[in-house]
Design a protein around this nucleic acid. Structure first.
Lengths: 343, 343
DNA sequence: CTGAAAGCGCTTACAG
DNA sequence: CTGAAAGCGCTTACAG
């Protein structure tokens, strides 16, 4: 058994490998780095030596000389939101595929924690950073990173678009689809429920809503800002259920709010899609679990993650490349929570 | 503006700091490491020098000599499951508090990918590893890590319990509560829906169910294994809705299955809690969104993450410490999906 | 509290 | 393709 003496064994070095294989250390180094300069026979014997003595490449030492760590950092504002888990999976897929490792940090929407992380990541010598800025992050945050010469890509939210690469979603396509469908169904009193978070995606969604409403010649009945939690959204729906002349249709900043309102209306005996229409945003898996299903706007977190990682790798490779901004389209997904307006 | 020449500036070294402050490099090093050996005045002047020239501590170089990286690795099988996001937040909280950074890797339940990650983490010189083993991981996986002398803690699932520290959940408390409540309500035909995943938490849940059933003198009506997806669970519920003598109550391996069955039964016009009883596992936030709410067994992902990180830090500090196994209690949470058995 | 020396494990030119 | 030398930026004893 163990647990008695799990003492860390001294790791063999490249010198040990070289000695074992009867070559110089430089040659062994070339083999490790898969250089084509080494002959097949030599390579085989070095690799055999490595296997035999249990050699482990020391990336830290290599990086110190080579001035790169084969490491990137990712800063995520909210790990409890499944949306970010999926985004992370997309990033990981590309970064891992390129042979790099990912540091993760969880800002909990705190710009202060975020500042600390950035310093730590820099001390660890990350080759680049993907950041989804915490709510309330100042543009100064990104400037500091670029002053350092740190390759940076913003994802989902931006405070420095135009200065660094950015991959966000195009809110307008999905929002237009949602509003157009509501208008088609005869709704003219349409409300928007936004979240009290200060970040670009929030502002863009609200702006996209207003633009779509204007395009269809409808005035927004009401815009309400709440904490983006199930509980707050349920409370709002219960209140609205008893309100005279409340909107006949609601668009919500995200599915957390949409699902909460769905439950709140249902608790009051109102059926979404019949008594009022309800649309969320993000199209998370749970929209299919409630009855009737919650219509939503689909965004592509995996694709956004993949693109962000690709842009970062490019930026690391080519620091002087043009700043690039990518917007991943969104589209409306209809479900039972949407129906015709009632007289 | 930038985007033109974000060339990485050469970082100042400790030698630069020492020169600037008029001290030796060793003294500067002591200041960086917050050693008490340095006088207040000297410290102040060194710190001023660091600030002035924009010094950034090079953790890679420091770690090479000190033989520790102030870095740990975490291997997670499924980032799309919000449960793991929350677990990660718990881990991060402790690790970050201790001043270490976290590498994350996403195995997607693949033991093969997992092997690759472990090698890479080792090359990066992580000080320790928290692993939630992918389904199907062989015990050999953990043995290899301990052979290397790598500090390891298993979380949520174990293939090497007794050999390394492990923090899991105690399935039995919550399961007993769930089964006891069903029996109380007069149910005698109780089914269990398990997931086709091969890992310890899966086996434990099934065993806990059987034990609770035996304790109450009930024979399981049926045990069914499915893909743990909403779709499969919905399909199963629809099938069961039309089955003569189907169980009057169901316990599910997790909330993904529970929520899927909830929707499936509802689609057939059956109301959980009235026409049959339904209990999930994990108590995710979404259990409160469906109507009636899905009863579930609450486990504590944050606490499990916190404990796992604490055990790892201890193990790194004290490699020879006794192997420790911790089980975080679970408890039954009743909601509307549970009701009296009908004649 | 400080200085000079050696070394952590690798890569980078540079000469063969 | 190979070898000997220097250096990446820090920490660790060790003598003052």
């Amino acid at each position: 058994m163990m647990g008695e003496k799990p003492v860390r064994k001294p790791r063999p070095t490249l010198m040990d490998v070289a000695r074992k294989a009867g070559v110089s250390r430089a040659t062994a180094s070339l083999v490790v780095r898969k250089s084509p300069l080494v002959g097949a026979e030599t390579r085989a014997s070095v690799e055999a030596a490595m296997a035999e003595i249990g050699y482990v490449y020391n990336l830290g030492a290599a990086g110190m000389r080579a001035a790169r760590s084969r490491t990137i950092g990712v800063i995520i504002p909210n790990l409890s939101n499944p949306f970010f888990g999926v985004l992370l999976a997309g990033i990981d897929q590309v970064v891992d595929g390129a042979g790099l490792a990912t540091f993760i940090a969880h800002s909990s929407e705190s710009a202060g924690k975020q500042d600390g992380f950035v310093t730590r990541m820099r001390e660890h010598g990350v080759d680049g950073l993907i950041v989804c800025p915490a709510a309330g992050t100042a543009p100064r945050f990104i400037e500091r990173l670029t002053d350092w010469g740190m390759p940076v890509v913003e994802a989902l939210r931006t405070v420095g678009a135009g200065v660094v690469d950015y991959v966000g979603m195009d809110q307008s396509g999905g929002m237009e689809g949602a509003v157009a469908r509501l208008v088609d169904l005869g709704h003219s009193r349409i409300g928007f429920v936004t979240a009290n978070l200060n970040h670009s995606a929030h502002d863009e969604r609200l702006a996209a809503f207003r633009a779509a409403m204007a395009r269809h010649g409808v005035a927004s009945a009401i815009e309400i800002e709440i904490d983006p939690t199930h509980g707050e959204a349920m409370a709002l729906a219960r209140q609205m259920a008893g309100t005279q002349d409340a909107p006949t249709a609601w668009v919500c900043h995200n599915d957390v709010i949409g699902l909460g309102m769905h439950r709140g209306f249902s608790d009051c005996g109102l059926v979404p899609g019949r008594d009022m229409s309800l649309i969320g945003f993000d199209n998370v898996a749970e929209t299919d679990l409630v009855r009737p299903g919650l219509a939503s706007v689909a965004t592509e977190p995996v694709e956004i993650g993949v693109l962000a990682a690709q842009l970062l790798l490019r930026r690391i490779e080519t620091p002087e490349a043009e700043v690039e901004i990518r917007r991943v389209p969104s589209h409306f997904v209809e479900r039972g929570s949407v129906g015709a307006a009632r007289g």
